[in-house]
């Protein structure tokens, strides 16, 4: 098995002492698009935050391996440097920090090497301007976007586009999209999905984990695999056709099959 697959084994996670994930086993393959679908409260976002290292999520058991390292041992910033990226469901506003300055700091953090003067590894300003311009052009973003404060006063669509811009700049090898479709109208959804597809087309080895409640996003980001998360466990796995089946029948039929009743 490739070290470039992200392997989650028997992952148990608690929040404020309450167990939310109850033994997740999942492999995100290099270059593949995986969708995790599930009803509200099934643990989808918990999985996303846990993989990114949010301190509120306590791993009580299990492991996550990527590129030969146990990801759970790493600080959130080191996970980012390893190639993990989380597109937030609710991106956080940071007043006074411009998009352009923040992205430069993030890029430089990725380029920094231990024991080496960070000035010598920092991206030269001219090169940075070129890179951010080309990425923003690719995502059809107006230049003034870069001068705004991070998510401050952004519309839902703008926030999600900024997440995709960050992904395009940082060039991760595993990208987790946490309910990227939530709060978007169909036009905004298409723009965001197109952005993801462009980034993926440029970097075919990118593994993607799309977390979503609804099937509609999967019309635009076509998954290779679909996993159904329910009550903290993966209860079904299949191909893209499963998303359509879920759209048609809802989650209840699986709940009945797995847990015996549709309560």
């Amino acid at each position: 098995m490739s070290a470039n697959n992200l392997v989650i084994r028997n992952l148990h996670v608690a929040v404020d002492g309450k167990e939310i994930l109850k033994g997740i086993n999942l492999t995100i393959e290099e270059g593949k698009i995986h969708a995790i679908m599930g009803p509200n409260g099934s643990g989808k976002s918990t999985l996303a935050y846990t993989l990114a290292g949010h301190p509120r999520y306590e791993v009580t058991e299990g492991e996550v391996w990527y590129k030969g390292q146990d990801v759970l041992d790493l600080e959130p910033n080191d996970r980012s440097k390893l190639g993990l990226f989380l597109a937030f469901q609710y991106p956080v506003a940071v007043a006074g920090v411009t998009v352009a300055n923040f992205l430069r700091a993030a890029l430089n953090a990725h380029r920094a090497q231990e024991g080496v003067d960070p000035k010598s590894t920092a991206i030269p300003m001219a090169e940075y301007r070129k890179v951010i311009k080309s990425r923003m052009d690719m995502l059809e973003m107006a230049p003034d976007f870069a001068r705004r404060y991070l998510n401050e006063g952004f519309s839902g669509g703008e926030k999600k586009r900024l997440e995709i811009l960050q992904m395009a700049m940082l060039q991760p090898s595993i990208s987790i999209m946490d309910e990227t479709d939530s709060g978007l109208d169909i036009d905004a959804l298409k723009i965001v999905a197109e952005g993801v597809n462009k980034v993926k087309a440029e970097k075919p080895e990118l593994g993607v984990l799309v977390i979503t409640h609804y099937q509609r996003l999967l019309n635009y980001i076509k998954p290779d695999y679909v996993h159904v998360l329910m009550n903290g466990q993966i209860v079904r796995e299949g191909g893209p056709e499963m998303a359509l089946e879920l759209e048609e029948k809802g989650y209840d039929f699986i709940r009945e099959e797995v847990f015996g009743n549709a309560s």
């Binding site: 990114a52 600080e75 996970r79 980012s80 956080v92 940071v94 953090a109 960050q166």
Partner: peptide
Amino acid sequence: DEEQLFYLQSRGLPF
């Protein structure tokens, strides 16, 4: 704000 800290860390910035 812890959420702000985590957001920036998740993009590679050390604590």
